[in-house]
């Protein structure tokens, strides 16, 4: 059997063993997300506009990740709404920045991999860079949104009379912890993913100036920064959506 298949089976077994049903569904959502990601590239290669593909696929990925990962309906729904708001907000940041910084496509360092390829394929690589950036942030946004919504719904369940202001303070304080640790996840993910590139830079004696203006380096750093901005924005937005829901639930007559 293929290594990927066996590793996938091992992961599935472990997730089911440790997580029971939640684990199995979480694994399922991974598979779906992979399918969606690949499908997104295929759609773009068929000529669909990258922006539209990003929006639609992004909405579905968020839905799979959040609703499959969290059983508590009371937390999942606000988390999803908040994640959608943050995604749209992020697109409003990512779109102009990618058009300004022009770190799309490939660089001279890629030459060897590009041998014999036609580069004039008629698809805007800036658009693809936007898609890449947006989709790569979704995991972090979903994770932060779920964590905050779950924490706050726990507080609401225990103290149904909690004030909106108190809820807001609690949301931010949960958020602080999440941002702190997610920072590490993103940062190491970045270090790890691009060790080879950094060794390349160092062994060919790139100057500091050429590294910080390098297309690939800039593109990668941007992805991490966008994810970080996404996570930071998720904290107040999710808290806000939760307080709205709480207020709405409070105004309704008790059944």
């Amino acid at each position: 059997m293929n290594t990927i298949t066996v590793l996938g089976l091992v992961l599935f077994l472990l997730m089911t063993l440790v997580g029971g049903k939640t684990g199995a569904t979480a694994f399922l959502s991974l598979i779906f997300n992979f399918g969606l990601l690949f499908f997104a590239v295929v759609l773009i290669s068929w000529g669909f506009p990258p922006m539209g593909v990003t929006l639609v696929i992004g909405m579905i990925i968020l839905a799979f990740t959040i609703f499959f990962g969290e059983d508590n309906e009371l937390a999942a729904k606000p988390a999803y709404i908040a994640a959608l708001i943050v995604m749209v907000g992020l697109i409003l940041v990512i779109f102009p920045v990618e058009h300004w910084i022009m770190a799309q496509g490939f660089s001279l360092e890629d030459s060897e991999d590009l041998e014999g390829m036609s580069l004039s394929i008629g698809v805007s690589f800036v658009g693809v860079a936007v898609t890449e950036a947006v989709l790569s942030t979704l995991g972090a946004i979903a994770e932060a949104g779920i964590a905050i919504a779950a924490g706050l719904s726990e507080i609401i369940a225990q103290h149904p009379q909690v004030t909106t202001k108190r809820l807001y303070i609690d949301g931010i304080s949960i958020g602080k912890q999440i941002i702190g640790t997610t920072f590490n996840t993103l940062f190491f993910g970045f270090f790890g993913g691009f060790l080879a590139l950094f060794i390349w830079f160092a062994s060919l004696h790139y100057s500091f100036g050429s590294v910080i203006n390098n297309k690939i380096f800039v593109g990668e750093v941007l992805m991490i920064l966008f994810s970080l901005i996404g996570v930071i924005l998720t904290v107040p937005v999710t808290t806000w959506v939760m307080t709205l829901e709480h207020r709405k639930a409070g105004n309704e007559p008790k059944r």
Partner: peptide, 27 residues
């Protein structure tokens, strides 16, 4: 249990999204 799924997704999306441009070119 509730953390692992979303966390694996975070890394998965980061690792996979990086390959987008080249994948598109191949297709």
């Amino acid at each position: 249990r509730s953390i692992m799924g979303p966390l694996i997704n975070v890394l998965f999306l980061i690792f996979m999204a990086e390959t987008f441009a080249m994948t598109l070119l191949y297709l």
